[in-house]
Deep mutational scan, measured.
Amino acid sequence: HNLTITQGKLFFHYNPKLCLSEIHKMEEVSGTKGRQERNDIALKTNGDQASCENELLKFSYIRTSFDKILLRWEPYWPPDFRDLLGFMLFYKEAPYQNVTEFDGQDACGSNSWTVVDIDPPLRSNDPKSQNHPGWLMRGLKPWTQYAIFVKTLVTFSDERRTYGAKSDIIYVQTDATNPSVPLDPISVSNSSSQIILKWKPPSDPNGNITHYLVFWERQAEDSELFELDYCLKGLKLPSRTWSPPFESEDSQKHNQSEYEDSAGECCSCPKTDSQILKELEESSFRKTFEDYLHNVVFVPRKTSSGTGAEDPRPSRKRRSLGDVGNVTVAVPTVAAFPNTSSTSVPTSPEEHRPFEKVVNKESLVISGLRHFTGYRIELQACNQDTPEERCSVAAYVSARTMPEAKADDIVGPVTHEIFENNVVHLMWQEPKEPNGLIVLYEVSYRRYGDEELHLCVSRKHFALERGCRLRGLSPGNYSVRIRATSLAGNGSWTEPTYFYVTDYLDVPSNIA
């Protein structure tokens, strides 16, 4: 807008934040220059609390790290170098490059900038070799853009010569660093050979998330399962459950009422301010606690030095998902009996873990797994792929695949051998790939016309006998059925096997 004052003059007093240069501009645009008398524009009460600059400061050096910015700028000295009290560095987070010096300023003089007072450097006698002032900004957020400017702080001049310097606002972004852990990993099994893994992005990506790394490792069953005799009275049979499938998407929606109208769909109840505040506090606490764990609990591995020492970490090797089922080394339970199943799973520490690289999504279907087997899954978020990966501390989750139908069934015939004193040795093959492992066998036998009897055969007993022995049988026709019990439950009964026990007292003698 054009402003013209045809008559009258300007009068400025007691404006401590208004620089004289701005008042002189007002004289020019209003056409009143030359009308004012000496005392109409006070030299001592206008701009006496402001830094009124008329020179431009330029930054000469900028260096960044993930949490620091090192700045240096060209030296500046007023005509009387004693008038320079120091520099004021202003900075704040700036997602967009549209910041002005006066953003967030209120009537009390406060604003949204963080201000650092910096002492002037030592003055050199040689004007050509003056030290460049600077400042190291610490405690910054990774991968965050900051708006920065600097200006001088000078003393009051009796001659009211307006001098000083100020830089333009520059924008500097800190470097990326390792992201925080992925949030809320959930693993479920939808079949006997697959596990579905879902997660949420890290709360602090500290860069642009480029991919996720998912490692999985087959877990050995508890050692007590191999040692305890679950045929003993009072000892509860062990059981394991597989990871249940995901709930429906509708039930997972946030901010939804727990109660549904019987007449149909209901609208979600909005969260109160107290609920939102509580969630923010919980989120802040979780982030602080995660940072504490990362800094205190997890110790970084030592990389190899120039002395030739090897990095103890196993090298990563990509495998196809079809090879995942046989990740671990199978060892027989008892070496003397080769027909026992290889369900003991000690994992070799030198073995390469299978892994998958996930790009542009937060889910993965891990296939080719062994049925009813526990897996430990390790999830890392990465925001750099080359020249070397920059990934987060791992988040861990466990899951067990679903049982395989008929995996616990005894394959092959049940054979028998009759000894003296009416002892019958029953023999059968253990299931080759049971659900988890076989903890015991149930032997059901009966003599024709009598009630059915049951015998429990422990895992250890089966390994020693290759089956079991029935003792003290009365003469007669017998039928026997056997079924295995694994961590997933009972298998199917075998087809009945028949044998006849004679009275050993009636056996004919070869003595003449």
Score class of each variant (00 low, 15 high):
Val327Glu: 07
Ile276Tyr: 11
Cys382Leu: 00
Met427Gln: 03
Gly467Asp: 01
Ile209Glu: 09
Gly412Asp: 11
His454Trp: 04
Pro349Tyr: 13
Gly308Arg: 11
Ser509Met: 07
Gly467Val: 04
Ile276Ala: 08
Val358Gln: 15
Val359Gly: 06
Ser398Ala: 12
Ser341Gln: 14
Asn326Ile: 08
Gln252His: 09
Asn435Leu: 00
Thr401Ile: 04
Ser251Glu: 13
Arg316Gly: 04
Glu452Tyr: 15
Lys460Thr: 10
Glu362His: 11
Val331His: 15
Tyr445Ser: 04
Glu495Lys: 11
Ile438Thr: 12
Leu232Thr: 14
Pro338Leu: 11
Lys460Gly: 05
Glu417Ser: 09
Leu379Lys: 00
Glu281Ile: 15
Gln380Ser: 10
Leu277Ile: 11
Val439Trp: 06
Tyr441Asn: 01
Glu433Val: 13
Pro387Tyr: 03
Lys302Thr: 12
Leu379Ile: 10
Ser268Trp: 03
Thr502Trp: 06
Gly374Arg: 09
Ala309Leu: 13
Arg319His: 13
Ser341Lys: 06
Ala405Val: 09
Val358Met: 03
Leu369Ser: 02
Trp493Phe: 11
Glu362Leu: 06
Thr340Ala: 07
Phe372Arg: 05
Gly476Cys: 00
Pro387Phe: 11
Asn383Phe: 04
Val501Ser: 02
Ser341Leu: 11
Ser509Ile: 15
Arg286Thr: 09
Leu232Asp: 15
Ser444Ala: 06
Ala309Arg: 10
Thr415Ser: 11
Thr343Trp: 12
Leu455Thr: 11
Tyr396Ser: 13
Phe462Arg: 06
Thr497Gly: 12
Pro245His: 10
Val457Gly: 01
Val365Ala: 15
Val480Tyr: 15
Glu249Leu: 08
Arg240His: 10
Asn421Trp: 09
Arg376His: 14
Gln252Tyr: 12
Val439Tyr: 14
Val214Ser: 03
Ser363Leu: 10
Glu350Thr: 12
Ser284Phe: 05
Ser248Pro: 10
Gly489Tyr: 11
Glu224Leu: 05
Thr241Glu: 02
Glu442Asn: 05
Ala394Tyr: 14
Trp493Leu: 04
Lys361Asp: 04
Glu362Arg: 11
Glu310Pro: 05
Ala220Thr: 14
Tyr230Asn: 11
Glu260Leu: 10
Arg390Ser: 07
Pro387Leu: 09
Ser315Asp: 08
Ala263Asp: 09
Leu213Met: 14
Asn326Pro: 13
Gly491Leu: 01
Leu321Val: 11
Ser262Ala: 05
Phe246Glu: 12
Ile438Cys: 04
Phe298Ala: 15
Gly207Ser: 05
Ala463Gly: 13
Leu505Trp: 04
Met427Pro: 01
Ser203Asn: 15
Glu452Asp: 12
Trp216Ser: 03
Ile366Gly: 00
Pro245Phe: 14
Glu378His: 15
Pro434Leu: 01
Tyr445Thr: 02
Trp242Ile: 04
Lys432Cys: 08
Asn255Pro: 14
Glu442Phe: 11
Gly207Cys: 01
Arg218Asp: 03
Thr415Phe: 06
Val345Arg: 07
Glu351Arg: 11
Phe419Leu: 09
Phe289Asn: 07
Arg466Cys: 15
Val329Gln: 07
Val397Pro: 09
Asp273Lys: 06
Glu465Ile: 07
Phe462Ser: 04
Cys269Asp: 05
Thr343Cys: 04
Ser344Pro: 07
Leu440Arg: 06
Gly472Leu: 10
Leu225Arg: 09
Arg313Glu: 15
Tyr504Leu: 11
Asp291Gln: 11
Tyr292Lys: 12
Val507Asn: 15
Ser239Gly: 03
Asp222Ile: 12
Glu265Arg: 14
Tyr259Pro: 07
Glu227Asn: 12
Leu228Asp: 10
Val480Gln: 01
Thr401Met: 01
Leu225Asp: 03
Ala335Asn: 12
Asn360Pro: 10
Gly234Leu: 08
Leu277Trp: 11
Glu452Phe: 14
Pro403Val: 06
Glu310Leu: 14
Cys468His: 09
Ile482Lys: 01
Val501Gln: 02
Ser284Lys: 13
Pro205Met: 12
Tyr500Arg: 11
Lys271Gly: 07
Pro431Ala: 05
Pro270Ile: 07
Cys468Trp: 12
Asn477Leu: 06
Thr497Gln: 15
Ser398Val: 12
Glu249His: 08
Trp216Glu: 03
Gly325Arg: 04
Glu224Asn: 15
Tyr292Trp: 09
Leu280Ile: 13
His371Ala: 09
Glu247Lys: 13
Glu433Arg: 14
Tyr448Ala: 11
Ala309Thr: 03
Arg316Ile: 08
Glu224Gln: 13
Cys468Phe: 05
Thr333Leu: 05
Val397Gly: 09
Asp273Glu: 10
Val359Thr: 12
Ser344Gly: 04
Glu281Leu: 09
Leu235Arg: 09
Leu455Phe: 11
Gly472Ile: 08
His461Arg: 10
Lys361Phe: 12
Phe499Glu: 00
Cys269Tyr: 07
Phe226Ala: 13
Pro205Glu: 02
Pro475Glu: 05
Pro354Arg: 10
Thr307Trp: 08
Ile209Gly: 10
Ser509Cys: 03
Arg390Gly: 14
Ser223Asp: 14
Ser479Lys: 03
Val334Glu: 06
Ser509Val: 13
Tyr259Leu: 04
Ile377Asn: 01
Glu417Gln: 13
Asn510Ile: 12
Ser274Met: 06
Ser367Gly: 09
Leu470Pro: 01
His461Ile: 13
His416Gly: 13
Asp503Glu: 09
Phe226Gly: 10
Ser320Asp: 08
Asp273Val: 13
Arg353Asp: 15
Glu442Lys: 12
Thr347Glu: 12
Ser367Arg: 10
Ser398Leu: 14
Trp216Leu: 12
Ser243Arg: 12
Ser479Phe: 05
His425Met: 09
Arg447Ala: 11
Leu235Gln: 08
Val345Phe: 04
Ala336Val: 08
Lys406Gly: 13
Asp229Ser: 07
Val423Gln: 09
Val327Ser: 12
Pro431Gly: 03
Tyr292Gln: 04
Ser315Gly: 10
Leu213His: 10
Lys317Asn: 09
Pro245Gln: 14
Ala309Pro: 07
Leu369Arg: 02
Pro238Phe: 12
Asp291Arg: 07
Arg376Ile: 13
Arg376Gln: 03
Glu247Ala: 10
Ala463Arg: 10
Ser320Tyr: 14
His352Ser: 07
Cys269Ser: 04
Gly368Gln: 08
Gly325Leu: 04
His211Gly: 09
Glu260Lys: 01
Gly374Phe: 13
Ala336Met: 15
Val393Glu: 15
Asp506Tyr: 07
Asp222Phe: 12
Lys460Glu: 08
Pro434Lys: 05
Leu225Pro: 04
Met402Ser: 14
Arg469Pro: 03
Asp261Gly: 05
Phe246Gly: 10
Leu453Val: 08
Pro387Thr: 14
